[in-house]
């Protein structure tokens, strides 16, 4: 057998192994990140009438910079791959769409325009690029975390703007999103349970979205740090493995 043939086979096997590793990681991230997201910010993602300009841009980015930071830490420090945040957010979006399409729409007949998920992918790509260009996780936390918070609402406003058109319904002023919530019965979530803006930020002259995005960006910076550290020093750690030299003779012979 020629050396080049062996080399080609080795490369092919390595590539297959790459696919297995990447696919497994992707599937694990879909499960883990999606469950996390549903538990900490689920309703804002599930329902169009929760996608307000105050709480949604605060809660969603803060709670969802977590996994991207940790996965970035592993993939950057161990593989020099600037794809951690993008991989996470693509996985999250895939999981969300499976859930919304099969469960919410297929089984219970909620229209997709009521239950579509938000997207973090543009912010995730930017977060990955900031890490790649700076090569420094603290700068990434400061700059990337800020951009993460600031980009969230404008990214999603493109999709939700039509649902904020005003409607006079039965003599009441409602947004299209409010009417959808009213008509497409959601028995387990009465109206008062919605955590949406209630006019408590009027001292900012109605500039709710900017204040929310600023606060969200600031806390996203803060959230990035512990999750990066957790990723780098726990998930990405190899200290739990013994080196070949420290293995017993029996193991070496085996």
């Amino acid at each position: 057998m020629q050396y080049s043939q062996v080399d080609a086979e080795a490369k092919a096997v390595a590539r297959k192994f790459d696919v297995v590793v990447l696919l497994s990681t992707f599937l694990a991230l879909i499960a883990g990140f999606h469950v996390h997201q549903m538990l900490v910010a689920g309703d804002w993602s599930f329902w169009v009438d929760w996608k307000d300009r105050n709480w949604w841009p605060i809660v969603a980015p803060i709670m969802e910079i977590t996994f991207p930071a940790a996965v970035q830490a592993v993939l950057w420090t161990r593989f020099r791959m600037p794809i951690g945040a993008t991989l996470c957010c693509l996985g999250l979006l895939f999981g969300e769409w499976m859930n919304r399409y099969i469960n919410f729409n297929g089984w219970t007949h909620y229209p997709l325009n009521f239950v579509f998920p938000e997207t973090f992918i543009p912010a995730a790509v930017v977060l990955d690029i900031v890490l790649m260009l700076t090569g420094n996780w603290i700068v990434t936390a400061l700059v990337g975390g800020e951009l993460w918070g600031w980009l969230f609402y404008p990214t999603n406003w493109v999709m939700i703007a039509p649902f904020h058109l005003p409607v006079e319904y039965q003599g009441s002023l409602m947004s299209v999103a409010d009417v959808i919530n009213y008509m497409y019965v959601r028995t387990s979530t009465p109206e008062y349970l919605r955590i949406v803006e209630t006019g408590t930020m009027r001292s900012f002259a109605g500039g709710v979205t900017g204040v929310a995005a600023f606060f969200s960006a600031f806390v996203s910076v803060c959230m990035y740090v512990p999750w990066w550290l957790m990723g780098a020093h726990f998930f990405g750690s190899t200290k739990f493995f013994k080196t070949y030299e420290s293995a017993s003779t029996e193991v070496k012979h085996a």
Partner: peptide, 23 residues
Amino acid sequence: LENYGQSRMLMWTLVTTLIGVAW
């Protein structure tokens, strides 16, 4: 209301997802 805003939402989701997939 059965499908209002749906095609716009799908298109934007697709466009932004393609950026991620390309990266």
